[in-house]
Simulated assay, not measured.
Amino acid sequence: MNDKIKNALLFVCLITGHFLFSQIDKKATKETKNLYKNLKLISKNHILFGHQHALEYGHGWSNEPNRSDVKSVTGSHPAVVGIDFSDFSGKSKDEIEKSKETLRKNVIETYERGGITTVSWHFNNPASDEGFYWKDGISKASMSLIKPGGSNHEQYKEILKTIADFAHSVKAKNGKLSPMIFRPYHEFDGDWFWWGKSQTSREDFIAVWQFTVSYLKDTLGVHNFIYAFSPDNRFNSEEEYLERYPGDDFVDMFGMDDYGDFGRDGKYDLDAGLKKLKIFSDLAIKKKKLAAFTETGLESIPNENWWTEILLKTLKSNDLQLAYVLVWRNDKTSPTHYYAPFPDQISEKNFIRFYDDPFTLFEKDLKNIYSTKFNLK
């Protein structure tokens, strides 16, 4: 093959790759790029199952090696494991380091097993006390303070350095950095967090988001993140969904957190939930990005057939292309705060049916998710 033909084929591959996958970090690690592409491929015919804090603790237990409630029921960990950067600020130095070490082990072990990590960030307010929730009379509207030029901007940069240091530290035995799906400022269209819509202008939200991504990626050299944008469910059109969208150069994945349409307080509006999923699934297809159902679930799972009759039936509808669905955590002490089944929980048998369905994928179903040799077992 002569050089002209080789160069022409290379050009076609580059152009095709550009149009097939619109990942924002052109310097992303090979493993992160492969994960992005493989998640896109999975979303066409399957969906990964995820569970928040799955390996850190579960219903009645905590800090036990290689344990998860999902594994206790199915024999496999969830394909996607949720962690949180909540303890990376607003704590003592010792507490931050202890948290980083616990999460580092979690992320590396998940990567080495072939699973995927997604990161939420319940960010403690850097300009006032009382954590990440908005509390009238106490909390400050701090997005305007941490944006470039704001009074707390330098402090914010130091917090992002802590996150970058962690991202650089999750190195597996093979010397590769573990990729992570980073989902900052989630549920921003609500008013319960200090970064919520009631406390933050559209312009300030976008400014902070764009700075966050650019600073991590371009200044601090973090190249193992996939960036996810996930409002709550307060939208009914593509235009409303994109109201605070920071732009195609700052987002890899579209998502949504939606508990309200899927049975919270005994209320179901599956048509509304499906409509919203379809809005950003189609958007991801149009923009050649990823989509995922970034949070959902039914607390205590009192509906014993919820997994197949509510969740799975919805996920299989209307040609959705979602890479994963993640349910919230199982608290270690609360008898009622859990979102995934454990042995003898009322929905356990139905969850096994959900697990056995060819459409759903768990960690055991994945092979080479970080490689060009990816295939399903």
Rank of each mutant, 00 (worst) to 15 (best):
P343M: 02
T212A: 07
N38I: 01
P302G: 03
K37E: 10
S144E: 15
A323M: 04
K217R: 12
W209P: 08
E239G: 08
K27V: 09
N236Q: 11
A207W: 05
H59L: 12
H337K: 13
W307Y: 03
F88T: 11
W307I: 00
I47A: 02
E64I: 15
N125T: 02
V222Y: 01
S89Q: 13
F188G: 02
L277A: 02
N375Y: 10
A79G: 07
L366W: 00
K93Y: 13
L361Y: 01
K377P: 14
T102F: 09
E238D: 07
T200D: 01
S86W: 13
D84W: 02
V107C: 08
N106D: 14
V325I: 10
D69M: 07
N7G: 08
S68K: 05
A8W: 13
L283M: 13
K98D: 14
N38F: 02
D94I: 15
R104E: 12
A284M: 05
T117G: 04
W192Q: 02
D129L: 09
M256R: 03
G273V: 02
R264K: 13
H122E: 07
S151A: 15
E243C: 02
G131T: 06
V170Y: 06
E187D: 11
H77N: 11
K135L: 11
V119L: 06
R104Y: 09
G260M: 08
D189R: 02
I5S: 12
N152E: 15
K176I: 03
A8R: 14
T294K: 03
I15A: 11
E154N: 14
S371D: 07
V12W: 10
K33Y: 08
K287N: 11
S214H: 10
I352L: 14
N368A: 15
S169C: 11
L14T: 11
D331F: 10
F254R: 00
S237M: 03
L35D: 02
S62R: 13
L41Q: 10
W61L: 09
A292T: 00
C13K: 13
Q52G: 01
Y36W: 07
T296P: 01
A291M: 04
L315A: 00
S178D: 07
Y36R: 05
G263F: 00
V222L: 07
T110N: 10
D265A: 13
I301R: 02
K173T: 14
M256L: 13
T200C: 04
L320C: 03
I24T: 15
H122I: 12
K171M: 09
P246H: 05
L270S: 09
I346A: 10
I96R: 14
W328C: 00
I159F: 14
S300H: 10
K30W: 11
F205R: 04
I15G: 12
H51Q: 12
Q321V: 04
F193M: 06
I83Q: 05
F49Q: 06
G82I: 01
S214K: 12
A228C: 14
K313C: 10
S201A: 09
D69F: 04
D252S: 10
K316P: 01
G137V: 07
V80A: 00
Y339Q: 05
N236I: 03
K91C: 12
F354N: 01
V73R: 00
N368V: 09
E158W: 10
S76C: 05
V208Q: 01
V73A: 03
